[in-house]
């Protein structure tokens, strides 16, 4: 799992950490059932306080992405609402593209141009 945060950013560190997990889940880098690193270890690696990581984990738990289990740490339980919303939008995009005679490669090119 890749974590990328910016200490100079205006965005709160806990939001950046939560964003990394959301991105990992959305891209498939993090699978359902996967265990996240303990808050103290991740905090040390990212040079942030343990409580900042815990705040990010709690935020993700409240969104239904993580669950906490005693002795087993934080685990991914679902892709969360954000992922399903993106999947639904992507499905609608694929359908619209087919109606206009556009194929897979055309869609990839359009998305690359936009991102």
């Amino acid at each position: 799992m890749r974590w990328a945060i910016d200490h100079t950013s205006r965005e709160r560190l806990q939001d950046q950490i939560a964003g990394c997990v959301r991105r990992g889940v959305a891209t498939g880098e993090l699978e359902v059932g996967e265990q996240l690193p303990p808050a103290a270890e991740l905090g040390e690696a990212l040079s942030v306080d343990r409580n900042t990581v815990l705040a990010a984990y709690r935020q993700l738990r409240d969104d239904g992405i993580l669950e906490f289990r005693r002795g087993r740490g934080a685990r991914v339980v679902s892709g969360g609402p954000a992922l399903s919303a993106v999947t639904e939008a992507a499905q609608a995009l694929v359908t619209t593209a087919r109606e206009h005679g556009l194929g897979r490669n055309d869609l990839i090119r359009i998305i690359k141009e936009l991102t």
Binding site: M1, R2, A4, I5, G19, P37, A45, T115
Partner: peptide, 17 residues
């Protein structure tokens, strides 16, 4: 969303596995 997890000044990139 970051375009690259390991790019940019001021950014800190860590891998855990």
């Amino acid at each position: 969303m970051n375009t690259s997890p390991f790019a940019g000044d001021g950014a800190l990139a860590v891998y855990t596995g």
